[in-house]
Amino acid sequence: MVSDNISKQVIKYWKIFALLLFCTVLTVLAVYVDFDVEGSIAGGIFIGLTIAVFKGYLVAYNFMHLNDEKPMVYWIILVTLVFFLILLFIPVIWESTLVGKY
């Protein structure tokens, strides 16, 4: 039974691998497509980061087997992500700074 599960897992890992390769190709191709919104490259950045987040999710969820982890690990990741988001808040504060833009 156990080995049956593992062979299923193995197949899943290779599928994820194929999906990751596919996403890589997709994100590179996206560079050559014009997603520009009103002259800014925001559209392209959005597409690129969405694909990256999806790939990151695939790796974390499957390879780092977060699909089947203990609550303690989820708690640590949750706390870290909250502080990570606070860290990404720095450019927002900086944007609001009235002087000191160079």
Partner: peptide
């Protein structure tokens, strides 16, 4: 942390 930086000219909201 930004309360150490009130004098850097950050906006009112922040």
């Amino acid at each position: 942390w930004a309360h150490h930086m009130f004098l850097t000219g950050m906006g009112q909201g922040m």
